[in-house]
């Protein structure tokens, strides 16, 4: 009786474990999402530096740090934060550029797809045959009819 229940529990757990494998959902395939993007990482590091700066400010006001130390450290931290900010802006610019390229590519693709361009390019010599032929008009090599991509 108890043994039966145990087997039942183990069996249903096995099912529970295997279920995700059986799903035919393709969307999640091959895309383990990135947890920390460069932008987020830089932002986090900046927050740490800001925190350090505020701590420094506070300790200075509390009279724990000598003025010359305070000045030097403050400049140092600010330079560090600025470096991180500059890197962040750089990444954003690059991302923006990247997005532009992506858009361009997408537009070109769409353009090309409009007339289903027959592809009779010779695999041997590279000649673009203007007409649907079985053999290359330039070198005579056999051409395979282009398959529709999908």
């Amino acid at each position: 009786m108890e043994l039966g229940i145990t087997f039942l529990i183990a069996g249903s757990l096995a099912l529970f474990v295997m279920l995700p494998l059986l799903s035919r959902d393709q969307e999640g395939q091959g895309v383990l999402p990135v947890d920390v993007t460069p932008t987020a990482d830089l932002k986090r590091r900046r927050l740490v530096v800001y925190e350090n700066l505020q701590d420094l400010e506070f300790e200075y006001k509390a009279g724990k740090i000598a003025p010359e130390d305070y000045e030097a450290l403050r400049n140092n931290y600010r330079a560090e934060a600025a470096g991180l900010m500059a890197a962040s802006l750089e990444v954003e610019r690059a991302d923006a550029g990247e997005a532009l390229i992506e858009r361009e590519v997408a537009a070109r693709r769409a353009e090309r797809r409009q007339p289903p361009a027959p592809d009779y390019r010779c695999p041997k010599c590279g000649f673009e045959n203007p007409l649907p032929v079985k053999f290359c008009g330039e070198c005579g090599a056999a051409l395979r009819p282009a398959k529709k991509k999908g």
Binding site: R46, L47, Y50, E51, L53, Q54, N75, N76, R78, A79, A81, A82, M85, A86, L89
Partner: peptide, 22 residues
Amino acid sequence: AAPAPIDPKVLEAMEEEMKKVA
């Protein structure tokens, strides 16, 4: 060595962000 001068654009973005967390 004195820290290199910070690009004003960067500085602006930085100050703004700092104000938010202050």
